[in-house]
Nucleic acid binder design. Sequence first.
RNA 1: GGCCCCGUCGUCUAGUCUGGCCUAGGACGCCAGGUUUUCAUCCUGGUAACAGGGGUUCAAAUCCCCUCGGGGUCACCA
Length: 506
Amino acid sequence: MKIRVRFAPSPTGLFHVGSARTTLFNYLHAKKRGGEFILRIEDTDKERSKPEYEENIFESLDWLGLEFDEGPIKEGSYGPYRQSERGEIYEKYIKKLFESGKAYPCFCSEDDLEREREAQLDRGEAPKYSEKCRKIDHEEDLKKIKNGEDFILRLMIEKGKEISFEDKIRGRVSFQSDGIGDFPISKGFERPFYNTACAIDDFEMRITDVIRGEDHISNTPKQILIQDALGFDRPNYAHLPLILAPDKSKMSKRFGAVAVSDYKKMGFLPESLTNFLALLGWSPGDDREFFSLGELEKEFSIERCKKSGAVFNKEKLEYINGLHIKNIDLQRLTNLCIPYLISESLIIPSHGEEEYPPAMGARSVTVDFKTADGRSINFDTLKEIVKEHQDRMTLLSQIADLSSYFFNRIEVDFDLLQWKEMNSEELKDVIDKAINIISNIDKWTKEEVTERLLQEANQYEGRGRFLWPIRAALTGEKASVGPFEVAWILGREEALKRLKQAKKSL
RNA sequence: GGCCCCGUCGUCUAGUCUGGCCUAGGACGCCAGGUUUUCAUCCUGGUAACAGGGGUUCAAAUCCCCUCGGGGUCACCA
C-alpha cells in the first residue's frame, strides 16, 4: 500500500521551526518510501485562525522546498483540505456516534465543569468528567436536544481497558482508559473538537502514517478510541522528540526567532535550515552532517530517529549555513545578497527600487546599480564582491557589514595606515609607489594587478610593510578582503582616488 | 498532582535492539599552534560525557530493578 502522510498545522501564528521539522520528517518519510505528502489546514478555531497565517505556511513550505502532493491550492482526491470546509463530513460521523449510542450528550455548563476540574486538581486527582450526564436516558436526551438546549457530545469510554499502540520511534506506548474519562468530541452535532476532526480526517484522507510531535502522545489514545468507535483502521504512529530552547523547555516566543520566515530574513538558506533540522533528532549513523534536501530524501529513515528532545543550537545552524553558502552557485548567491545591500542603502537599483526584490532568481541581468557614494556598478562587479565574501559569511545579511567599503566613502588616518613602526614619510613613499604602479598597469585584470603589486611587495623585508598601508588606504578597515582584489574590483580610477586621499591624511 | 515520554561531552550526536572491536568516535563552541599582507577561510592539536545506586555476567554505555533529574499533557484550543 502506498504511504500517505500528512502535516496538519493550525494557521494561528507564523509557521514555526518546530512545525518545519515535523513537516520535514513527514516529507522525507513520504519521499523515501515513494509515498504522498498531504497538507491539511486545521482551521476550526475561527477566532484564532487567520488567512495571513495560512499564507505564511504556504510561503514557508515553498521556500523550504517541501512541496506537498495534496492540500489547499493543490486539490487531490480527498479534499477539501481545510477543516473549515469539511463540516458535512464531520456531521455525518458525529451523528453516527450518537445514533449508535457510543456518544451521549452532556448538558453541564462550562462553569460547572470548570469548578469540578479545579476541585479535582486541588485534590491531586487527574481532572476527569464525572459522567453525570451519562445517566440521563436516551428519551430525555432527545427531548432536551429538541428543546434547543446546548450540549456537547462525549464518547462513552469503557472502564478498565488498556489502550496501547506501537510507536515507530518509541515502541509500545500504553494508557489506561480509566485515566481518560468520557472526553468531549463535539459541540452539538456540527462542530467537532480537535481529536474528532483529526481521527475522521486521517481516515477519510487515507493517511497511513501519522508523524507528529511528542506533545501529541497523550492525544493518541483518544483518537484511537474514536477510530475504534467508528470502525476506522488505525494508522501507524511515530512521535518525534520536541525541539527545545536552551533551557530545555518547549521552544516558544521567549526564545526569540521561532518563525521560519524570521530565519529567512536573517539570511539563512533554506537548505541550511532543512539540513540542520534533519539533524535534530535524526542522524545517518555515520559522521556525515552536510546534506542537501535531495540527499536527505534518499538517506532518511524514521527508525533512526531519536527519542529524546534536542536543544536548538543557533551556532551550529550558522555554521551549517556557512557551509551551504560556500557551496552554492555564485549567481544565486549574488542574487540573494543584493536585497541586503539594497536594504542597507549600500546600492540603489538605477531603475528604481520597485524592481527589487524580484521573483527569486528571475532578475534581469541588465539592471544596473548606483553605489552609496554615487558611482555606477553592475551585476558582474557585485558578483565579484560577493565572491570575495563567499567563504567569510555565515549569514547572507553579513554581506552588508563585510563589504560596505566597496560602496561607501571611506575614512583613513595615520593610525590605521601605519604598519608596525613605520613613519609617515615611509607610508607616503609606499602609497606613492602604489599610485605609480596602478597608474601604469596596461591590462586591468585581477592577475595583472596582483602580479604588479606583489612584485613590489616582494622588495620589502615583510610584504605587509607595503601591502598593509595599501589595503588600509583602499578599505578604511582593519579587516577586509585582500588589497589586490579590492584594488581590482574598485577599478583604477577609484583606487587611485582613495590612495591619494590617504596620502593627504598623512 | 495523575498519566505518558525521555536521560552519552556545555550543545547536536554515533554506539544501546543483536553485551566484548568503546582506555566511548564525530561535529558545533571554546583554547592553543600553523598557513596568510589584515580579517576570515583552511589545516593540526587540545578541552569535555555514559545521571546515581544496586543487580545479572568471565565481560555492561549496552540487559534488569530502584532512585534522582528533565520534559510533555491533563479545555466546549489545536
